[in-house]
């Protein structure tokens, strides 16, 4: 298997100005590296504010990267400009969290879903474009006649289907799904997840799936990367991660998941104290040290590197392995 997308030390810093003199740097994404294998679904989990979405927007060049590389099919996305960048965009797509905000309220479904065709296949006639739009709508479970409608005429789940149709109409290889189900009702979430799985099989898609929902990620992804305050803390195959979570933060995330399994009932719950620290002012050493039950002086002094403890299982913690 080959990596479709390889992130190497991707960084995105924001500068916050308060008044004229005070400037602070927020390291929203701070040196993230992982691979996304072709045909797989790679999960990216973490609390809100951990930098998951910032990473997604940076990889897609919707934010200007501060540093690092994002190698997509052998090309560094961070070095592309103008037309080359536009050409590569055809192969990538994104579905956002809130379908109430990601569809322009004054545009018809035809114009929303047809926009990628206009940009990437400008020579299509109106009829060709129209039939492709209609076909795509049916593939995501909407009606061909919906082209005439406006976003407000649809429910949340249907809107997310429109957003998916827009992302897929030019047949990309790679899709970033930025919490595509967390704004939806539970009953609708399952339907959208199944749709995404069906489409992945049909179009041979590679997904980067961002979420904070451990149940969803377990259901859909092959590999999971755990982020905390802009850093990668653990990365492993899904099964491995759920069986043998090593980082205290991952364990805390997993123990927050309610379970129906009676054997699991007696397990020790690991609850985190307090909120994540201010990203503009993270604790020294390990960024998790301020909330970690295992933290000692070393953790508060030195930042742990990401090391491979098992084949394919990476973790950044002084208290793991040796």
């Amino acid at each position: 298997m080959t990596a479709l997308l390889s992130l190497r030390d991707v960084a995105k810093y924001f500068e916050i100005r308060r008044g004229v003199f005070e400037r602070r740097v927020v390291k929203a994404v701070d040196g993230i590296s992982f691979d996304v294998e072709e045909g797989q679904t790679v999960g990216l989990v973490g609390e809100s504010g951990s930098g998951k979405s910032t990473l997604a927007l940076t990889v897609l060049r919707l934010y200007e990267p501060t540093g690092g590389q994002a190698i997509f099919e052998g090309v560094n996305l961070f070095e592309l400009k103008g037309r080359e960048l536009t050409r590569v965009r055809r192969k990538m797509g994104i579905v956002f969290q809130d379908p109430y905000l990601s569809l322009n309220p004054v545009k018809r479904v035809r114009d929303i879903v047809g926009l990628p065709l206009k940009v990437h296949m400008p020579k299509l006639s109106f009829e060709e474009r129209e039939s492709m739009i209609r076909e795509m709508l049916e593939q995501v479970g909407l009606k061909a006649a919906d082209v005439e409608k406006f976003p407000h005429e649809f429910s949340g789940g249907q809107r997310q289907r429109i957003a998916i149709a827009r992302a897929l109409i030019v047949k990309p290889k790679f899709l970033i799904l930025d919490e595509p189900t967390s704004a939806l009702d539970l009953s609708v979430q399952a339907k959208i997840l199944n749709l995404l799985l069906d489409l992945q099989r049909e179009f041979r898609l590679t997904y980067l799936f961002i979420t904070h929902d451990m149940n969803v990620i377990k259901h859909i992804s092959d590999r999971i990367n755990v982020m905390y305050l802009g850093k990668l803390v653990e990365s492993a195959e899904t099964e491995e991660l759920f069986e043998r979570p090593l980082h205290p933060y991952t364990r805390a995330l997993l123990s927050s998941v309610p379970t129906l399994d009676p054997r699991q009932r007696g397990r020790k719950k690991m609850l985190l104290r307090g909120d994540p620290p201010d990203p503009a002012n993270p604790p020294p050493g390990c960024r998790f040290s301020s909330r970690c039950p295992l933290a000692d002086d070393l953790c508060r002094r030195e930042e742990p590197p990401l090391v491979q403890v098992e084949p394919g299982h990476w973790v950044a913690c002084h208290k793991v392995g040796g």
Partner: peptide, 24 residues
Amino acid sequence: PFVLAAKAIGVGSAHIIFREALPN
């Protein structure tokens, strides 16, 4: 997000100003 979505597709500033933002 709908402006970000249009950017991710690869449209230029003119499209975003006139077609996406201005009508709103």
